[in-house]
């Protein structure tokens, strides 16, 4: 049990998907202007990541691996992810119209969030069991949400700052992200054994 807990911590903090692995930077930069939308995006992505990765794991284990169709992996996974994102979009549109408005184009773009595909592939590569897969992906998605919310909070404050003209907009956001990444370096080598 504690092993899973440490796995959760490790994936969320030590190997943070955004700050350490540098995956999922598109929504990280795109939907991080407000805490509310960042939180919504994080939750939507969490949903997609966990669902897509577990479906992908099953497809890999029950379909692709037995039939020796490893070369179709990328194609299949993208198909699954696209379908899950489509489904998520419908759910969000129905359940939270204002969040749907806020996320805008970035909601369907979860399909192209490399964190989703990346995590699905890593699970196969690392030969995770199904339970590990779910925890690993949930932890990573949690880390993604955490990074999104923290970053959005800072950008909210930044929007009130007197940033020099040359740095306004994306440049200062990247500087900020780099400093945040610097802070996350503190978790590197974290080992509870």
């Amino acid at each position: 049990m504690s092993e899973y807990f440490f796995l959760l911590i490790t994936t969320a903090l030590v190997n943070n998907v955004v700050m350490v692995k540098f995956l999922g930077l598109c929504p990280f930069m795109g939907v991080s202007k407000r805490i509310d939308s960042a939180l919504g995006m994080g939750l939507a992505t969490t949903f997609v990541i966990v669902l897509a990765a577990s479906v992908c794991w099953n497809i890999e284990h029950w379909l692709l691996a037995p039939l020796g169709l490893g070369y179709l992996r990328l194609l299949t996974f993208i198909l699954v992810i696209a379908a899950v994102v489509q489904f998520t979009e419908m759910v969000v549109h129905k359940m939270a119209p204002s969040l749907y408005q806020m996320l805008g184009i970035y909601l369907p773009l979860i399909a192209t969030n490399c964190a989703v595909l990346g995590l699905a592939l890593i699970n196969i590569q690392e030969k995770h069991s199904f339970v590990t897969t779910v925890i690993y992906d949930f932890g990573s998605a949690l880390g993604f949400t955490l990074a999104m919310v923290m970053f959005a909070g800072m950008r909210e404050r930044l929007s009130l700052a007197r940033v020099p003209a040359v740095f306004t907009g994306a440049p200062i956001a990247f500087v900020l992200a780099s400093l945040m990444s610097l802070a996350f370096m503190g978790f590197s080598g974290l080992n509870f054994k």
Binding site: I35, F151, A183, F184, F187, G189, L190, N191
Partner: peptide, 29 residues
Amino acid sequence: YVIRTWGGYPEGVAFAVLLMNAVTPVIDR
């Protein structure tokens, strides 16, 4: 404490402060 005890660096104050700095706007909110 976490970084000192389990982390890769012997001292963690600087990292800890930076991490909490990053959370400050959320706390304030």
